[in-house]
Design a protein around this nucleic acid. Structure first.
Lengths: 342, 342
DNA sequence: ATTGTAAAAGCAACCGGTTGCATTGTCAAG
DNA sequence: CTTGACAATGCAACCGGTTGCTTTTACAAT
């Protein structure tokens, strides 16, 4: 690998001149510029990114970390959507993307602080907010820009986030089901230690309360975002017999599919007997049987937004401030219908 | 950010001693070790990864590059599966993962050689082999370890790859359809400039030839791996009337879903009138209507394998050699059935 | 007490760029 | 022909670690 000094020797100039030609921030006479460029070309020189990072104190990388990767994480449309948004936005600004995350929870958090502490990235995008670990607090101490996907707990008023107002939109879904005549509505959340699960649950509870419906505790269950989680939730809830839900809301489409599978196996008609609503509006939801009514969350847009906030604050040099709420949309398909009157 | 010299000052030792404590490759007396560690702890010191990379000529990162990201790339299960395999394997060896890829074709290739040439990663995993750009040739000149997902063109015998024998398994699918009595079988490939598309097409043609079936050129179409591509392919092929296919093979599940959608719109029964086979065995394929018969390709395993080959060759310091072929499996569900006899 | 030996720590160069400051070169105005 | 002013380039320190080699220290053997 040729270095800047090799190029300098060949072009008969000082290394710093070569550097200036490549960074392009200073005046260079046209004659030396072409000479340097020719030498670089002949040697196949490309500036070493690591050396440049060290010198400039800037890596041109942002890290995307997943503090709650679960089994099946990569099956859900969430991750690919997020990556699409990040890459789109980062690439535009000539930033690279570092991905952190594995299946072991403790590991990930270690890994996160490894990346942060060792200054491998200029900024961090945190993909979710676990309630059982104070990630935000730790991040604040590190003096590195970060943006959260999802609102933090109230104690952190100042940090930047992009969120989708999960509680409100989940409430809207519940309102919609109630409007269809349902009263026994189940909430199947994801991992209970993840904020979004709690938020959606809050929206659910508030909507039920508004309608004056008393919630049976057994209507609330957690499927950890995986298909089988939805399936199992149905198994448990069907045992309630007369109290069994007539409608299910699932916090992602994957679990909704599991719910559909369980109901199909039991010969229950959807939406004739029972209604099901998913979340995300992933491509998969349009092709299920029946096509799923789902709460579409524009994750790619959210992350693109979050990324550009992050990049901007990297450039200005101070902690990002912006807080954005993005609109969701209920897509009504064929998995929901009027409650049967008994 | 405290540096190694800050720690050294505080502990009253030389910077190199601090370094040795952290790298742990040399004998250090217990007393100084604890003193250094205490100082580091008090200052919140963590070694700077960039400086270490520069000094050690090793970044502890591998790059995953996508030389053919297409619209909808992130909707297919391919990418998330790949990421799952890479992260699983890389994380185990304390390697980070850099993701390259965007939607503009030319850009990606530039980006690829940027990463390679600037030594941002110790090795590269190339996610696909475009036929219209000589990526392998260029990579060979760069003297950096790389592993291909997918076999390269025959001229590159020596490079490392992990592949799934696409031609053979596609042939097997076609055999299966022929066994069901189908003779007018359509092949819906992805992007024709990607090797896998050509390979599967070859398998298709060979199987048809073996059965003595003459191929109508209109039975071959390209859907560029997106859902709508499958949909459009059906629109075109239905115009063949008497020559219209009775079975469709699609090179990924997404296109197969598009095919199902088009057929459903036209009121055609699957599998009663027409059979459809997808590829990948993504979760989505199990939940479509009807559940999709699909050729399962274990991408996560393939990439995990490819990653570990890559990491090993990074450690030994020479170009990887291993070439692996991974088995696929035809999952028969409800989208395929006997051909109707006319 | 002296010498030998090995373990522990220090020294300084190096990885490959960047950049503030000093120096040289060029050309126009006086 | 000077002098001034500014553009172009050179110089050297710096970013924050690592590591081969040298020196110091400690302790055992003579």
């Amino acid at each position: 690998m040729p270095t800047i000094r090799d190029v300098a020797t060949r072009a008969g100039v000082h290394p710093s001149t070569v550097s200036r030609v490549f960074t392009g921030k200073t005046q260079i006479s046209e004659v030396t510029r072409v000479r340097v460029l020719a030498a670089a070309d002949a040697l196949g020189f490309q500036p070493n990114a690591v050396a440049r990072s060290l010198s400039m104190q800037r890596t041109n990388m942002i890290a995307v970390v997943v503090p709650h990767a679960f089994d099946g994480y990569f099956e859900d449309s969430y991750f690919p959507e997020v990556m699409r948004g990040v890459l789109r936005s980062a690439y535009k600004h000539e930033y690279r993307v570092l991905v952190g995350g594995s299946s072991g929870r403790a590991d990930e958090i270690v890994q996160l602080f490894d990346i942060v502490g060792s200054r491998q990235a200029d900024g961090i995008l945190v993909l979710s907010n676990r309630l059982d670990v104070d990630i935000v607090g730790a991040l604040c101490n590190q003096n590195i820009p970060f943006v959260l996907m999802g609102k933090p707990t109230p104690e952190y008023e100042e940090v930047a986030w992009v969120d989708s107002n999960d509680a409100a939109y989940t409430g809207q879904v519940v309102d919609y089901l109630i409007g269809l005549g349902h009263r026994r509505i189940a909430y199947v959340g994801g991992d209970p230690d993840v904020l979004v699960t709690k938020e959606r649950q809050r929206g659910y509870c508030e909507a039920m309360a508004r309608a004056g419906i008393e919630i049976v505790p057994e209507w609330i269950d957690y499927g950890f975002f995986v298909e089988d989680g939805g399936y199992q939730a149905v198994q448990r809830m069907r045992r309630l017999n007369g109290d069994a839900p007539t409608a299910y809301y699932a916090a992602n489409d994957l679990m909704a599919l599991g719910i559909l599978r369980a109901l199909r196996e039991q010969g229950i008609d959807v939406p004739g007997e029972i209604s099901v609503v998913g979340t995300n509006g992933s491509l998969i939801s349009a092709h299920s049987h029946p096509p799923l009514t789902t709460l579409h969350v524009p994750y790619a847009d959210m992350t693109a937004k979050a990324t550009s906030i992050l990049l901007q604050s990297i450039h200005t040099g101070d902690m990002p401030k912006a807080q954005h709420t993005i609109d969701c949309q209920l897509i009504i398909r064929e998995s929901t219908g009027p409650a049967i009157t008994m």
